[in-house]
Design a protein around this nucleic acid. Structure first.
Lengths: 148, 148
DNA sequence: GTGCGTGCAAAATCTTTGCATACGC
DNA sequence: GCGTATGCAAAGATTTTGCACGCAC
């Protein structure tokens, strides 16, 4: 007999329970939203709150903020400080651990890219100063083709 | 006869006048402060306001914000978005046009470094997407020797 | 049932802005 | 003297927090 009807715990659920925390519908909805829209999207807390409200999900903005901070600390999301007007969050996927951003300073359009050279340069700088590297992100600011 | 008693206009004064703007004591004091403490220091608007008040200079916080935005636009200062709790500003010197930051996520200590590889990688990414590159900065986050 | 998480609203930050006055040019 | 810049205070924008209630465990 297979246990095919047993609920499969999500990674989020597992990790929460390890720390004595709980998987609430709100937390699930926030992470689900990021997973539905896919990686490479940069959302503000207001964006997330708005989208959840639109999809008939009752979540308060305060809880969105609390959940975002939690998911960042747990490593599911990544916090960006690219633009004016508040921080953005993106899904952190295993496929793109250290990616960088190309931002148009005029229209805000952002593109992502990866570069081993950059990761290596960051690692060398950290080593030289005796730092333990956690992450390195290159922010390239410029004008996109439409804004030149 | 030498014009040795003529006041020598500062670059700030010259550039302001070209745009029909004025060199006020407040603007002079803000830029002077950055030049006195030297490059590589990262100050918040509050820091700057506090230091000016301490040195008996009457400048309002609103003017500090307005002046910082102006000096960034004029290219005298550079705006950083490294840390939580507001933006920081640093003196932009000709010696270190494109430098990067190593930040300790625990204590906030920051070190600067330069890397041609990083600048090159940023340029390549911009070219590939058709962006006109303005600046690129690598933010390396980690733990400094004291916080490991 | 226990105690963590949520919602609400108020508070705390950080930054910008309107307007009358001051002053660099 | 003209018009920009300042100071002040109020408004705005974003994020955090205190507290009572609700719900995941």
């Amino acid at each position: 007999m297979k246990a095919s009807f047993a609920k499969v715990p999500t990674p989020l659920e597992l990790e929460l329970h390890q720390e004595g925390r709980r998987l609430t519908p709100q937390r699930k909805k926030v992470l689900d939203l990021f997973q539905r829209i896919g990686g490479g999207k940069h959302l503000s807390a207001e964006d997330i709150h708005g989208k959840l409200i639109q999809s008939k999900s009752r979540v308060s903005l305060a809880t969105v903020y609390r959940t975002l901070r939690l998911l960042v600390k747990m490593g599911f999301l990544h916090e960006l400080e690219l633009s004016e007007g508040g921080h953005r969050f993106e899904l952190l996927s295993q496929d793109h651990p250290d990616h960088h951003h190309l931002v148009c300073v005029n229209c805000g359009r952002t593109e992502e890219f990866e570069s081993d050279q950059v990761v290596l340069a960051g690692k060398e700088a950290a080593d030289k100063q005796g730092f333990k590297l956690l992450e390195s992100t290159l922010n390239v600011r410029g004008l996109c083709p439409d804004c030149i």
